[in-house]
């Protein structure tokens, strides 16, 4: 299961991939492959987001 930091890294990575299509670096010959990679990453993020669970732990310390 991905941790939030990993998810945030993947979201950042996805943002960079999407920005490439809008940038001057855009290259038609690479576009199809890049778009497929972007879709794959988006699916991975969706899977991570859907499966991630929070770990809620009540501390044993007595604050009384």
């Amino acid at each position: 299961m991905s941790q939030p930091n990993n998810i945030n890294k993947k979201l950042d990575e996805l943002k960079i991939k999407i920005e490439w299509f809008y940038s001057d670096d855009f290259d038609l010959s690479k576009a199809t492959k890049e778009y497929k990679n972007t879709i794959d990453l988006a699916k991975e993020i969706e899977k991570d987001l859907t499966s991630m669970k929070n770990e809620i732990k009540v501390l044993a310390e007595d604050f009384n």
Binding site: P4, L49, N54, V58, L59, F63, N64
Partner: peptide
């Protein structure tokens, strides 16, 4: 709080101090 937290996001480590 826990319900909304779990509905919205995951992967968080939440430590709870039980107090009055």
């Amino acid at each position: 709080f826990c319900k909304i937290l779990n509905e919205r996001w995951g992967g968080l480590e939440v430590q709870v101090a039980h107090t009055q």
